[in-house]
C-alpha cells in the first residue's frame, strides 16, 4: 500500500482519539466504581439497575412507614399494659372490699380509688399518638371515649404496607379492649363496682370480681394482639433490611466495576497512550525531507 503523509497523520490521529475515548471511559469506571454509568454502557443492566433503584426506594419507604406506624403501636401496647395493671389494682381493691369484715368506710375509700382508676383508664383509652387518638379506629380526631365513657370511635383497623404484597395492622382496637364489643364494657364494670362499694353491697362487690377479671383478660388479649403486630413489624423491618442488603449486593455484582480490573485497564491504557504519542513523534520525524535535508 502506498502510504502518504495524510494517511500517517489521519491514522495516528484516529488511533490517538480512540485511545483517548477508551482512557476516558476507563477513568470514569475507576473513579465511579461503576461499570455501567449510563444506559448505553449496557442497556439490559441499566434497565435492571433502574428497577433495583425503584425496589430500593420502595424498601426504604416501607421501612420509614413501619417506623412511623410502630410508634403508635408501641404507644398502644404500653397503654394497654398500664390499663391491665389498673384492672389488676381494681380487682385487688374489690377482693379486699369483698371480705365480710370490711367496713363501709373501707369500701367507701376503695370506691374513691376505683373512681380514680376508671378516670385513669379513660385517659389511657384516649391516648394520643402520631396519628391522633389511637384507640378510636378511624376517628382519630376526637377522643375514643367521651366523658360518659361511651365509645365514640369505630372498628376500623389501621394497617400499613409492610412489603410488596403484605400489610400489618398498626392500631389497637379501643372497642375490643374497653367496650362491650370485646365482651365487657370495663368502664361500666368499674362503675358497677363503685356503686357496689359506695352502697356497701357485698354481693355486688363479689359479683364484680368476675367482670373485672374478664375485663382484665380482654385488655390483655388486645395487648397480645398489639404484641403480635409489633413482632410482625419487627419481622417486616428485618426482611426489608435484608432486601436492601440484597439489592446493594446485586447492584455491585451486576453494575459495579472490579477495582483491580478497572485500575489495571486504566494503567494499560495510559501506557498505550504514551506509546502511541512516542510512536507519533518518531513517525513524523521519519521522512525523506528530514533524512535528506542535511545533504
Amino acid at each position: 500500500m502506498r502510504v502518504t503523509d495524510n494517511i500517517r497523520t489521519s491514522s495516528s490521529f484516529n488511533n490517538l482519539r480512540d485511545l483517548r475515548e477508551r482512557h476516558l471511559a476507563a477513568s470514569e469506571q475507576a473513579s465511579s466504581g461503576n461499570r455501567v454509568n449510563r444506559p448505553s454502557d449496557d442497556p439490559a443492566i441499566a434497565a435492571r439497575l433502574s428497577r433495583n433503584q425503584r425496589w430500593q426506594q420502595q424498601t426504604e419507604s416501607l421501612s420509614q412507614s413501619l417506623d412511623l406506624g410502630r410508634a403508635d403501636l408501641d404507644l398502644g401496647e404500653a397503654s394497654l399494659a398500664s390499663a391491665a395493671d389498673l384492672m389488676i389494682r381494681a380487682k385487688e381493691l374489690a377482693l379486699t372490699a369483698s371480705n365480710g369484715s370490711a367496713t363501709a368506710e373501707v369500701r367507701n375509700a376503695a370506691a374513691v380509688e376505683v373512681r380514680g382508676i376508671r378516670d385513669s383508664l379513660l385517659d389511657l383509652a384516649n391516648t394520643k399518638g402520631v396519628r391522633g387518638y389511637i384507640f378510636g379506629g378511624s376517628k382519630t380526631g376526637t377522643p375514643a371515649f367521651d366523658a360518659s365513657f361511651a365509645f365514640q370511635g369505630d372498628d376500623y383497623e389501621h394497617s400499613i404496607p409492610s412489603g410488596p404484597s403484605s400489610e400489618v395492622v398498626v392500631s389497637a382496637s379501643g372497642s375490643r379492649a374497653f367496650a362491650a364489643a370485646g365482651g365487657r364494657d370495663v368502664f361500666q364494670d368499674l362503675g358497677a363496682l363503685v356503686t357496689a362499694l359506695t352502697s356497701n353491697d357485698e354481693s355486688g362487690i363479689r359479683a364484680s370480681l368476675d367482670t373485672l377479671d374478664a375485663g382484665h383478660k380482654q385488655i390483655t388479649l388486645e395487648r397480645s394482639r398489639a404484641g403480635v403486630n409489633m413482632a410482625r413489624v419487627d419481622q417486616s423491618q428485618e426482611m426489608l433490611t435484608n432486601t436492601k442488603f440484597l439489592i446493594d449486593s446485586q447492584n455491585a455484582e451486576i453494575g459495579g466495576a472490579d477495582p483491580t480490573e478497572s485500575l489495571s485497564s486504566l494503567v494499560t491504557l495510559e501506557q498505550s497512550l504514551q506509546r502511541s504519542m512516542s510512536v507519533m513523534q518518531t513517525l513524523f520525524g521519519l521522512d525523506a525531507f528530514t533524512m535528506l535535508g542535511g545533504r
Binding site: S61, Q64, S65, L68, G69, V130, I160, P161
Partner: peptide
Amino acid sequence: NQLSVDPS
C-alpha cells in the same frame, strides 16, 4: 405510603 400511615 407516609400518608397512609397518618392520613390526617
